[in-house]
């Protein structure tokens, strides 16, 4: 792999894509915590679960965004990251519905 010419810098571009994704996850998690936070144990529970999901996504995405040389592709990380995104969406729905009561 060290001798192969790679004009497209594909592994680097993929690492940067993982970093952009992790940054987006962080912004979304911060918005969800802000929405859930004010008042009540339910809000605190939703905010805590959001922080947990964010931590899981951090652990999943970080190794994919760092390092040099050939990048790993595929694997269980991809469906798990998608699942984490669905989790953030559902926690957001709970936070919105909580505001109606």
């Amino acid at each position: 792999m060290s001798t192969a010419r790679d004009p497209g810098l594909q592994p680097e571009r993929t690492r940067l894509a993982w970093r952009r994704t992790l940054l987006t996850v962080t912004v979304v998690a911060a918005l969800a915590v802000r929405l859930a936070s004010p008042g009540g144990p339910t809000g605190a529970l939703i905010a805590g679960l959001t922080v947990l999901v964010w931590g899981a996504l951090l652990v999943l995405c970080w190794p994919r965004g760092t390092g040099t040389g050939p990048a790993r592709t595929g694997g269980r990380t991809l469906p798990l990251v998608a699942l984490g995104t669905v989790g953030l969406a559902l926690l957001g729905v709970l936070a919105v519905l909580r505001g109606l009561w």
Partner: peptide, 26 residues
């Protein structure tokens, strides 16, 4: 790798919609 980047671009599209929903609510 290109397939994975396409997946990540779609995932960010989904995250942007989630972020938009959270922003609309507050």
């Amino acid at each position: 790798l290109a397939n994975e980047r396409t997946f990540l671009a779609w995932l960010r599209t989904g995250l942007a919609l989630v972020g938009g929903g959270l922003a609309a609510a507050q």
